[in-house]
Nucleic acid binder design. Structure first.
Lengths: 224, 224
DNA sequence: ACAATGCTTCGGCTACCATCGAAGCATGAA
DNA sequence: TTCATGCTTCGATGGTAGCCGAAGCATTGT
């Protein structure tokens, strides 16, 4: 039974870690779940047998990812049901402080800095947010063009929205997703303000000294 | 954790027995699951605490039913995943043939007719499907406007996609979800082609005689 | 009042399975 | 070859949860 697989806390933590769509190695997943590699190995083979995850061998690493969107969808549904009853997950977020501060979520900035960025943009009327819906204002467009050289036509996409609120894993508050969130992250990269950590599979985003400074100028909240 | 609740075989059997939307007594559920009443009692209180089932007291009987369509939807999703790997539950799908033929999944049409509808729409190039992603074609827009008076702007929604593939519980194939799936179901209702069964909580969808005829004209596969 | 039905609570048993230490296998590096 | 890393398999242990018998409430019927 599939549900029994998801039912175990250790396996549920692994699956949650895979929910961002990226593939993780067995050891990374073991650490996510807070168990030893040999226990994780047992769990992962069960998840694979159950068709929930796929395995890709690469050298001496073994990368696991969710099989497809159907699996992710069902997991989201389960999370939704769990959320209604307040029976939320015990394990709240990443322990790693660097991961907590700034990381990649799909293709945009998440973590403390990601939440801070959206907060500031909202405060300064660069975007308007109603629940999970976010709209870019005219003021916001001017701001993006001036400071980050991002134009509206760069953000157009047939199916993906420009702005989207994405619930932050560690902060439990929204950060900015959508084509704008992706474009901004890409721009940070190009400007050498920030870069994904070199260690393969890591989702940590490291800011350079000047990048940190510039980011604070644009989106700082005075707390750092 | 919700998944752990569904994971236990005895509880899973009870939930499956409730999938047709009708309420059953504790003893009936005990029999369905093949366990004694006292064990069933323990399970049922857990399911209730987890928000999966609702209790209605009536005399010395206690009727349990699934909390709402969201729960049913997630259970369908789980059953769908289980079906793919051949790791089927012993009890495969709804026994009730009416439920198997046409039922509500969240807010759209599921069951044999739901799968058939998407099949036909795909065959006639009304939609294009790539894995779980479905796109409405220009031909599809014309078709919807002509035969069901559904216009594209009726389908726009900030967060919900217009088309989405949803894995069907009984058929193990995709049917059409998203705002289009919902709009079509609503239109069937308005046109008096079909209606949800009157018995409270039932997810069965009954087609009228003319409705069946019209539906077959638009989406029939020649097998009926 | 008494009995019958439907369901729950309590206590103890048992089986399953997650977990980890130790050892083994594979890949890659020196 | 030799060593290091990443992961798996084996074996033993322990905790948890499903399970049922017996007894206890509650509701209904006579």
């Amino acid at each position: 039974m599939v549900a029994a697989l998801v039912g175990d806390p250790a396996r549920a933590n692994m699956l949650t870690a895979l929910m961002n769509g990226r593939a993780l190695t067995a050891s990374e997943l073991a650490q996510e779940a807070g168990i030893t590699p040999q226990t994780a190995s047992s769990h992962l083979s069960k998840l694979e047998a159950g068709g929930l995850v796929e395995l890709e061998k690469q050298g001496r690493h073994r990368y696991y990812r969710l099989t497809d969107d159907d699996v992710a969808g069902v997991l989201e549904g389960l999370a939704g049901l769990a959320a209604r009853t307040g029976h939320m997950r015990v394990r709240t977020g990443p322990k790693d402080p660097a991961l907590r501060r700034a990381r990649i979520c799909y293709d945009h900035l998440a973590g403390d800095l990601g939440v801070q960025m959206l907060d500031t943009m909202r405060d300064r009327n660069l975007v308007r947010q109603k629940k999970q819906e976010i709209e870019l204002t005219a003021e916001g467009e001017r701001f993006l063009a001036k400071h980050l050289q991002i134009s509206p036509e760069m953000l157009a996409h047939p199916r993906r929205p420009v702005c989207k609120a994405c619930l932050d894993w560690s902060e439990r508050r929204h950060h900015l997703a959508g084509t704008l969130g992706a474009a901004m992250m890409q721009r940070f990269n190009e400007l050498k303000w920030a870069a994904r950590d070199a260690t393969p599979g890591s989702r940590v985003v490291n800011f350079t000294r000047t990048g940190e400074k510039q980011f604070a100028t644009l989106f700082g909240n005075g707390k750092d």
